[in-house]
């Protein structure tokens, strides 16, 4: 069965200069392809990572065994929220995404969905997610979800074309998953929950700066002011990657200092931190995209391993 987009759903994104629009021919799609496009709009792989980290936060916050019913509700609400935020982010960036080969095949720049449909979908998922968390989990979790949505969609996304410091701003909502997981389990956010937030906050810098270095030219074409775009040589990028990886080492040891985890985690976190720092230092040695890719790989190994180790070695 084929579905033809109506004339009112004509898509107004095209490969013109950022900030300008042009009406293009609607795309004919099957229902299945359209559903796939909506799923793609939620960035499912990122949503999965967010849900897993939130689950780790929930498990770490659960003092007297895990309440699986509450865990399910929390993860479902967080998944809704994550999908909604991703959809709204793509809606806002639909024109710029046309200029980057990395993002040009997304549902909006490739004309598989209309901006109106994506906006409605994103808003609905976000609102549903917040309401779901408020009803089935607790008000604090919903409040954190709302703050994340505002921080990511209304503050971070518009700042991307204005200042390279948007990466710093975006790191705040980006670090919420373990905090929201903990809040879902306990209804509180004590110092240790903020330590988990700090770990994820710091982790993001080498990770996102590596991505920005790899796609420097694409970001520049899309007029997104990432640090490697405004400082082409990459000195500040390498400097900041190293400094954040360095800061991450003592902060990643906080769970043991605060009595949440034992010495297995302590030494494991230390080893992982040194590995991440080494990968960041290596990016200082050359300007290659291959080196930045290795740092990115190190970052995606580091975080899941660290949280898995934390859950494994919980001592209380």
């Amino acid at each position: 069965m084929n579905t033809v987009l109506s004339a009112s759903e004509e898509i107004i994104t095209a490969r013109t200069a950022p900030g300008t629009t042009q009406v293009v021919t609607p795309v004919v799609m099957s229902v299945r392809a359209k559903i796939n496009a909506y799923i793609e709009l939620t960035k499912p792989r990122i949503a999965l990572m967010i849900v897993l980290i939130a689950a780790a936060g929930f498990a770490l916050g659960s003092n007297n065994g895990i309440d699986f019913s509450r865990l399910f509700h929390a993860l479902f609400g967080i998944a809704l929220l994550s999908g909604g935020i991703a959809a709204l982010n793509q809606y806002l960036e639909r024109e710029r995404d046309c200029f980057m080969p990395r993002t040009a095949s997304r549902p909006l720049p490739s004309n598989r969905l209309t901006p109106f449909a994506a906006s409605m979908f994103g808003n609905s998922l976000t609102v549903l997610g917040i309401i779901y968390l408020a009803i089935f989990v607790n008000p604090l979790t919903a409040l954190l979800g709302l703050a994340t949505a505002i921080g990511y969609v209304l503050i971070y996304t518009p700042l991307k074309t204005r200042t390279s410091l948007s990466t710093v701003i975006g790191a705040f909502p980006g670090a919420v998953p373990p905090l929201i997981g903990w809040a879902a389990a306990t209804g509180r956010v004590p110092l240790i929950a903020w330590a988990l937030f700090a770990i994820q906050f710091l982790w993001q810098f080498p990770h996102f700066l590596a991505i920005a270095w790899m796609y420097q030219d694409e970001y520049e074409a899309a007029e997104i002011r990432m640090l490697p775009v405004v400082e082409r040589r990459g000195v500040a990028t390498a400097q900041q990657s190293i400094i954040y990886a360095l800061l991450l080492i003592p902060v990643s040891l906080l769970p043991t200092l605060l009595g949440l985890t034992g010495m297995i985690y302590f030494y494991g976190a230390l080893a992982l931190g040194l590995f991440y720092l080494w990968a960041s230092v290596r990016t200082g040695f050359d300007s290659s995209r291959a080196r930045a890719r290795k740092l990115l790989l190190a970052s995606v190994i580091y975080l899941p391993l660290l949280f898995a180790l934390m859950v494994f070695d919980t001592v209380r």
Binding site: L165, R225, L227, E231, R232, R233, V235, A238, D286, S287
Partner: peptide, 25 residues
Amino acid sequence: WVKRIRPPVVDERGEAENTPDAWLW
């Protein structure tokens, strides 16, 4: 240190040394 060890990147715009963004960071 990074500036010393990192090979220069040459492009048509030249190098942006100590950009305001670097200091803001």
